[in-house]
Write a protein that binds this DNA or RNA. Structure first.
Lengths: 136, 136
DNA sequence: TTTAATGCAAAACCTTTGCACATCA
DNA sequence: TGATGTGCAAAGGTTTTGCATTAAA
């Protein structure tokens, strides 16, 4: 995985404390984060930053394809590093735990779909919902 | 497909003009609708209803499993009849056109996943993004 | 008549915008 | 220094809540 500083360098974006701190948060997170959580984490790490800066940074990094927006049906966006290998999410509907699913196995599904429809398919999202071990 | 009145009867909810009109809108729509679009359609059909009633109706019908919430990464919810056969959506990233995908072909994916993880998987969502014929 | 639904006003959330000031390269 | 990023205040868009009134069963 690319380091935070490497990412900043590649984008050509200015290396500001806020951006470095926000990217660090993602590099240390195992699941997609929403803006509010990031604000909290920054505060906890004594990084003084405005909420607006967080939103702006999330958008900028998404535009530069450093981050990827995802939605879990919560009415808000979450973000994750787009450098992560292609994967989907398995979400526990009881406790909210999120697990990554590597090898989505959807290549076949997508290929068949490509043949059946007139669309040129560029990407897909998938979320699986269920109960984790603890919540079953 | 169940008729609007049948749906109302099955839920035990009161048959109010607003609810009937809203369900009618869904019975005549080929794609998931957001609250705002519904408000517009009702207005066009001269059904006088408050926006809040639309939101409340959408929530009530979702609670009763008559409607299903879906998200297309727009920062708002859309709803569709949950009586529709299991399907996913193919969304044109250029013009916003939405096509249903019947036979999702994800049973295998889900079954394999079930074996590989400790979750009990209850359902999945999938959205495919690409370009429709016109926009290619 | 009793319970549930509606309308209106107000607010809660999440997110964006404008603008002056600060900071990185 | 010049371009870009930040903070603050304000606003925009979507959705929810409280409460008095109205309508369904």
């Amino acid at each position: 995985m690319k380091s935070t500083l490497k990412v900043m360098h590649d984008t050509g974006l200015k290396k500001t404390p806020a951006r470095i701190a926000i990217l660090d948060v993602f590099h240390h997170s195992s699941k997609p984060l929403d803006a509010d959580t990031i604000v909290d984490l920054l505060e906890k790490h004594d990084v003084k930053t405005d909420r607006v800066t967080v939103y702006r940074t999330l958008n900028t990094l998404t535009d530069f394809n450093v981050l990827k927006k995802v939605e879990f049906g919560e009415g808000k966006f979450r973000y994750e590093l787009s450098s992560l290998p292609h994967h989907h999410h398995l979400i526990c509907t009881s406790c909210g735990r999120v697990e990554d699913i590597a090898e989505c196995g959807m290549e076949d599904v997508e290929n068949k779909l490509q043949k059946r429809t007139s669309f040129v398919i560029k990407q897909h999202n998938a979320e699986f919902f269920g109960l984790c071990t603890k919540c079953q």
